[in-house]
């Protein structure tokens, strides 16, 4: 049987992660008044699509991608359900409850961040901005709500960095050369 060329699930995972992260930040900085688009994108692109991409990473033997994409896919689905639960009055989560939810995800991100430093520069940069963004959102939920805006701009950079990696995989393949470099690992 001829060897079949397989796609890289990371392009979908990074696409969904970046886009949903970006749209939440449009809301956090005050440009987009409603959080509605975040709920639906969080269920489908950031959630379902990224999670499927994560599960596909298993077959590539990439544990980092397997855990990160499946984990953050689940993050977006859970966040969307948090909003829906509050609307429909099932298992309501207060601002403080959401704060604790974010703290748990900050710790999860911190473990992946340590791994990202050894992968390449683009991955290290993306996870560093993601970790800082989570910490800013934690603080915003525990007494410093104005940091939501700072987190908003900071996480836009993170989303852009995720899309850079997506573009890198797609464009380098199409152009047949190292159009967008990954950069050296930080450690």
């Amino acid at each position: 049987m001829a060897e079949e060329k397989l796609g890289n699930p990371a392009v979908v995972g990074l696409g969904g992660f970046g886009l949903t992260t970006l749209v939440l930040q449009f809301h956090n900085v005050g440009w987009m008044p409603s959080v509605g688009p975040v709920v639906w994108l969080g269920l489908i692109f950031g959630g379902l699509a990224q999670m499927i991409a994560g599960l596909q990473e298993m077959k590539t033997g990439n544990n980092f991608g397997y855990c990160a994409f499946t984990g953050f896919g689940a993050f977006w689905i859970a966040l969307a359900f948090l909003f829906l639960g509050n609307h429909f009055e099932v298992f309501q989560a207060s601002t403080t409850d959401v704060g604790w939810f974010l703290i748990a995800w900050t710790l999860f991100t911190a473990i992946l961040w340590v791994g990202s430093l050894r992968i390449h520069g683009a991955m290290a940069f993306t996870f560093t901005t993601l970790l800082i963004g989570f910490i800013l959102l934690d603080l915003a939920h525990f007494g410093l709500p104005e940091l939501t805006v700072v987190a908003g701009y900071e996480l836009m950079i993170c989303a852009g960095a995720a899309w850079y990696m997506m573009a890198r995989i797609i464009l380098n393949e199409i152009y047949g050369r190292d159009l967008l470099p990954a950069g050296k690992p930080w450690i």
């Binding site: 939440l24 809301h27 956090n28 005050g30 959080v35 601002t95 959401v98 704060g99 915003a140 939920h141 007494g143 709500p145 104005e146 940091l147 939501t148 805006v149």
Partner: peptide
Amino acid sequence: TQVSFQPD
């Protein structure tokens, strides 16, 4: 008051 993902 404090509301998730709302600065003010």
